[in-house]
């Protein structure tokens, strides 16, 4: 088992009322799974991904990553865990505009203090694999959305994470580009990568090996359509 959430609660207090973002949530994910989380806007998909990805905290409950109790970790350990084991992909790509494709992909390695020669090799490999060697010196603004997301995926993979978290990865893409990204995910998953994606689209969700439905911060068996 890769990770396990037990009885997770997350809330915000607004004008005396407590609004639950996540409520009594359990989740287990094994290595090699491809989980699709579905649900309407505001159902808590992004929040859940942020909690899994350690970008955001939670108010109650236990979280184990590879058997380690994340909820008891100090910030520093959590940051190390995130840096080494978690890869993120965003709907809006979130590439750094001032860096080239090559430099964007290289950045996580810089923060992991990987040596220059090794960095070169790793980035070169992934550029090769994604067929974007020719674009390595371009800036994000010079790429199409699909190409940008491809760079986003490459960047998430460069540090060889245990899990890939994708929040609406195709939300800004047309259908052809979407399909390409989903095919890529499928292939990565086949190679053993654990993936959790949040999506609106039934079609995208169907690429997953497991589909979960979220409503108002809790799991639901009957997806509302």
């Amino acid at each position: 088992m890769l990770l396990k959430l037990e009885n997770i609660y997350k809330w915000v207090n607004q004008g005396g009322n407590r609004t639950f973002l996540l409520k009594h949530l359990d989740l287990e994910i094994d290595e090699g799974e491809f989980v699709s989380v579905m649900g309407p806007s505001g159902s808590g998909k992004s929040t859940l991904l942020n909690v899994i990805g350690l970008l955001d905290g939670f108010d109650e409950g236990d979280y184990y990553f590879q058997g380690e109790a994340v909820h008891q970790m100090r910030d520093k350990e959590r940051a190390r865990l995130q840096k080494e084991h978690i890869g993120f992909i965003f709907q809006a790509y979130h590439l750094i505009d001032e860096l080239t494709v090559y430099e964007n992909i290289e950045t996580p390695l810089l923060y992991q203090k990987v040596k220059s020669s090794e960095r070169k090799a790793l980035v070169g490999d992934i550029l090769d694999r994604f067929n974007i060697v020719g674009k390595k010196d371009l800036f994000p603004s010079q790429l199409s959305g699909g190409q940008q997301q491809l760079v986003g995926v490459a960047r998430a993979l460069i540090s060889r994470p245990k899990i890939l978290l994708a929040d609406e990865p195709t939300g800004n893409l047309n259908s052809r580009q979407s399909r390409e990204i989903m095919e890529l995910f499928k292939e990565l998953n086949r190679e053993g990568m654990t993936i959790v994606q949040a999506t609106h689209s039934e079609f995208n969700a169907s690429y997953g090996t497991r589909i979960l439905h979220l409503l108002d911060g809790s799991w639901t068996d009957t997806p509302e359509l």
Partner: peptide, 16 residues
């Protein structure tokens, strides 16, 4: 701000 966010996600610590 966005750049800072991205860098943090990519593993940048505050000190860096």
């Amino acid at each position: 701000a966005r750049e800072v966010g991205v860098r943090k996600v990519l593993g940048a610590r505050r000190r860096e």
